[in-house]
Design a protein around this nucleic acid. Structure first.
Lengths: 325, 325
DNA sequence: CTGAAAGCGCTTACAG
DNA sequence: CTGAAAGCGCTTACAG
């Protein structure tokens, strides 16, 4: 049988209240002598605290629930590292719940699981809930925060890059390099995509460019490969891609049909993960700080007042050609 | 205040026992009429089960703890997907605990956390505990299973690829392609590395090759880049790499100094993730079935009798040249 | 098919 | 500094 505080109390001749105080370090409520004895006996017995019992009486568990969807993007590693690190600093555990791929049912189930565990906070990573789930979250009394997704609604916590800024910076950079026929590829049809389109079009407009070209996709390598086909008949000189994977797909498919990057086609990728170093040539990117997005989202959901947008930066590598004007 | 079964009982005029039976679907112990009423009222009140209370009385939580270390490898996604999927099929939640980077303290803390939660099983992914922690696990009464690591000890559950088979197959394939000067690069100094070395040397021996060449590393892209330098003075024609990232690093560093792959140097990578498609040329690999490793580890830890080794396969892509004999 | 009661292992005012 | 007692929200024999 697993030992409990009752066993420790019996062996050490004190009450379970005292054992509890020592074990949960209510400093100042016990003598050093008692502490030493209890700690020794606890160790002897191989005592382990029962978290369920603690959570039941405290009515809140020191755990942050992270809900992820299984999109084919690889950005989540950095985000989760950041979450994990910061959560651990704040004494919070992390529980990961998958929500499938834009699967409303699985998402709902994940949210319910988090609520049933009375977690201290819920982080929704690259997830867009429907109205019912949003209401459920709001009514739960448990703080929640969107991560890597900006809903632009009042009183809703979120931490992400500024998507409009991402694409407008990419346009600025490409125009600076002499490009005017600039496409946007692999974008999704939801909030993130919409915001990126807005920044892209604002960027074009600011430079007096009137032709835009937008292709949708799902962030994956395969999606990038397919998209290249659609660009073949068009005469763009540069493409901004919604992810490193999209960029890699376009790049490789382009090279297979004899289109050289950056000589014939320039690429600016959004994300800036290690993928950008692995391709040949390596990819110029608008780099997101995923680790920081993750760690800051923990602060946000734990009630610390931190900013929503985490800055991005352009990293110049080998996939953009400077054009003659 | 969050409603409890007591509130539902009061409103519906039955006892909390009956409410509990309905809510936990102890079929056959309640009438349809009672069920309907209780379900309706539970919904009206926005009732959520309190998992902590359930776990406390059941003395076991329907959760599998996955302990990961933060190695710079990218294989974990597939493993975790597999774990998540299979766990969900079996009605188990998944909690992820990080153990840092071969950090004994963090690992110990993660194990203790899992034990304190009385999880139904513990999965240690690419983790080697010290003797104290192994004893702790054994004495806990909670089943545990090593994932993507084979300890070769009796009565210890584990699911992984057969490391000896991985490298011996790689050697076989390279010899088949006419290579005899074959190196092994990026290997670790622990169990996995040792087993891969054994398979590599057995493979060489089987083909009467007496010269071996082994370089250690840490599975990362950067590690691969550094390793190429060490190969410069040597005259190997093929390298088996410990991970796709190592392969990518060697590949890119090689191309930068004018060594062509596969013309001047052949590469067989171990892992076979999407990285192999992204590099130029793409990488021939010994592909591990990470998804299956993950899902099978769940079966293993839940007491289903499944095999330890998940088969690997050689995937021929563009990084191996056939030599004249 | 249903209820009264005990109990899971802790924490925490309250009293001393 | 310590103890007795109540209670967190459930489940489950037991009895009917």
């Amino acid at each position: 049988m697993k030992p409990t505080i009752k066993d420790i109390a019996a062996r050490s001749g004190v009450s379970i209240a005292t054992v509890s105080r020592v074990l949960s370090q209510k400093t100042g409520t016990y003598s050093e002598k008692t502490q030493a004895k209890i700690l020794r006996i606890a160790k002897e017995l191989g005592y382990r605290k029962n978290t369920a019992a603690v959570e039941l009486v405290k009515k809140r568990s020191a755990v942050i629930a992270v809900i992820l969807n299984a999109t084919p993007t690889n950005f989540s590693t950095g985000v989760i590292d950041g979450i994990q690190k910061r959560a651990s600093e704040l004494g919070q555990g992390v529980i990961i719940l998958y929500a499938g791929n834009r699967d409303a049912q699985m998402l709902h189930k994940a949210i319910v699981t988090a609520l049933e565990r009375t977690v201290s906070g819920i982080l929704l990573t690259a997830i867009e809930p429907d109205d019912a789930d949003l209401t459920l979250l709001k009514d739960s009394g448990i703080p929640f925060c969107f991560v890597s997704l900006y809903l632009n609604q009042p009183k809703i916590l979120s931490v992400s890059s500024n998507n409009e800024s991402i694409t407008s910076q990419a346009v600025d950079y490409l125009v600076e390099q002499g490009h005017t026929a600039i496409a946007l590829a692999g974008i999704d049809g939801y909030h993130t995509g919409t915001q990126r389109i807005a920044g892209y079009e604002a960027g074009l407009k600011a430079h007096g460019i009137t032709t835009s070209c937008i292709k949708y996709g799902d962030y994956s390598y395969e999606s990038g490969r397919k998209l290249l086909q659609e660009f073949l008949p068009l005469k763009v000189t540069a493409i901004i891609t919604a992810s490193d994977m999209i960029a890699a797909g376009i790049l490789n498919a382009a090279q297979e049909v004899g289109i050289r990057v950056p000589e014939d086609l320039s690429l600016v990728s959004i994300d800036g993960t290690i993928i950008c170093n692995i391709t040949t040539p390596d990819l110029t990117s608008v780099t997101q700080d995923f680790y920081r997005i993750g760690s800051r989202s923990v602060d946000q959901v734990m009630g610390h007042d931190v900013e929503t947008f985490v800055p991005v930066k352009i990293e110049k590598r080998g996939s953009v050609k400077q054009l003659e004007r």
